[in-house]
Simulated assay, not measured.
Amino acid sequence: MTKFANYISEAFQELKANVTWPEWAEVQRLTIVVALFSVIFALLTYGVDQLFVKALEGFFNILK
């Protein structure tokens, strides 16, 4: 158990001393970029899904 506590302690020390954290403005800007990309990707996925739905409906209507 001592090894685990030591590991956690050293991990926090490394986070405090060696990690360079971004500025708040950069965090906000990158969050907006990720949110916009997620919305665009979701819309593209929806569009491709609808395209496949229409294609399959057309294919099965031909088979009737």
Rank of each mutant, 00 (worst) to 15 (best):
L63V: 06
E10T: 01
L56G: 02
V48M: 09
W21F: 12
A42K: 01
T31H: 08
F37V: 01
E57H: 06
L43D: 01
W24S: 09
K54S: 09
N6L: 14
T45R: 05
V33I: 12
K64F: 06
T45S: 07
G47A: 08
S9H: 13
K54L: 07
V48E: 03
K54F: 09
A17P: 00
E14Q: 10
F59D: 06
E14G: 01
P22D: 02
N6D: 14
S9P: 00
A55D: 05
W24T: 04
V48G: 02
E23F: 02
Q28A: 07
Y7H: 14
A5R: 13
Q50H: 07
F59I: 02
N61T: 05
E57N: 13
I32K: 12
V33P: 00
E10D: 15
F4Q: 14
N6H: 08
S38W: 04
K54G: 02
Y7W: 08
W24K: 11
V33N: 05
V34L: 04
Q13L: 12
Q13A: 13
D49C: 12
L43H: 03
L43F: 03
T45W: 02
I62C: 05
F4L: 14
K3M: 13
Q50L: 12
F12A: 10
E23I: 07
E14A: 15
Q13P: 00
P22V: 08
K3C: 12
V33G: 00
I8K: 15
N6K: 15
A5H: 08
E14Y: 15
K64S: 15
A35Q: 11
W24Q: 07
L30T: 09
L51Y: 11
T20A: 11
A55C: 04
L51W: 09
A11F: 12
I62G: 07
L30S: 12
A11E: 03
A35M: 09
L36P: 00
A17H: 08
T45Y: 10
S38M: 08
L44P: 00
L44H: 03
F52Q: 06
F59Y: 14
V34S: 02
Q13R: 15
E14N: 13
Y7T: 09
N6A: 12
E26I: 02
W21N: 01
S9T: 12
M1Q: 14
